[in-house]
C-alpha cells in the first residue's frame, strides 16, 4: 500500500470538498446581505413622530439603554407576520422598540397600528426613505439591536421569528443590558 496507490482518492476528495461547500450553500439565504453597520454607531436621524408630528426623535435620545429599531410599513405584507411577536415582546417590557415607519403615509401607518396593536415606544416617519438608506434598509421588515453606547450590534433581515427572537435577539439584549 504505497501513497501512489491511493492516488485515486484525490478526485474523490476534491469532489467531496466541492460537494460540502455546495451543500452548505443550499441553506444560506442569498437575500441576506451582511450589514457593514454591525459594530458601527447607529446612523443619526431626527424624524417626526408618527403620533405626534411636532415632536422629533433621534437615536441619541435612546442613549444609555439597549433598544430595538424595527423598520415597518402599513403596505408591508410580511410585517403582519412578525407583528404579534413584537406586540408580545413589548408587553414583557424587556426592551424598548422604536418603529421606523418606512415610506408610508402617516394616516395609513397610524390606522395600521390601531388595527394590529402598537408595540412601539415611539414610531418615527421616514416618508422618503432617506433614513432607511442611511441604515442600509433594503427590505421591510428589518430589525436592529442597538446597545447603550448607540452601536448597532445585530441586524435581522426579514420578519422576526420566535426562533430568532428567543435564540439570538433576546440573549444578545440581555448580554448587552448586563454589560
Amino acid at each position: 500500500m504505497t501513497l501512489k496507490s491511493l492516488r485515486w482518492l484525490i478526485p474523490i476528495a476534491v469532489f467531496a470538498v466541492i460537494a460540502a461547500f455546495l451543500y452548505a450553500g443550499l441553506f444560506r439565504d442569498p437575500r441576506e446581505v451582511p450589514s457593514p453597520l454591525i459594530g458601527k454607531p447607529a446612523p443619526a436621524f431626527s424624524l417626526a413622530e408618527l403620533h405626534a408630528p411636532d415632536r422629533r426623535l433621534s437615536p441619541s435620545d435612546m442613549r444609555g439603554q439597549v433598544w430595538l429599531l424595527n423598520v415597518w410599513a402599513s403596505w408591508c405584507v410580511s410585517c403582519r407576520e412578525e407583528h404579534p411577536l413584537l406586540v408580545a415582546l413589548a408587553k414583557t417590557g424587556i426592551v424598548p422598540i422604536v418603529g421606523l415607519d418606512y415610506k408610508d403615509k402617516p394616516g395609513d401607518g397610524r390606522a395600521w397600528l390601531t388595527d394590529n396593536g402598537n408595540p412601539y415606544r415611539t414610531s418615527v416617519m421616514d416618508s422618503d426613505g432617506r433614513t432607511g438608506i442611511d441604515w442600509g434598509v433594503y427590505g421591510v421588515p428589518e430589525t436592529y439591536v442597538v446597545d447603550r453606547a448607540g452601536i448597532i450590534r445585530y441586524k435581522q433581515i426579514g420578519p422576526l421569528t420566535e426562533q430568532t427572537l428567543k435564540q439570538t435577539i433576546l440573549p444578545l439584549v440581555r448580554r448587552l443590558q448586563a454589560s
Binding site: 446581505v33 451582511p34 450589514s35 457593514p36 453597520l37 438608506i133 442611511d134 441604515w135 442600509g136 433594503y138
Partner: peptide, 8 residues
Amino acid sequence: LVARYGDF
C-alpha cells in the same frame, strides 16, 4: 453606498 450596504 458601500458604507450602507457593504461590498455586495
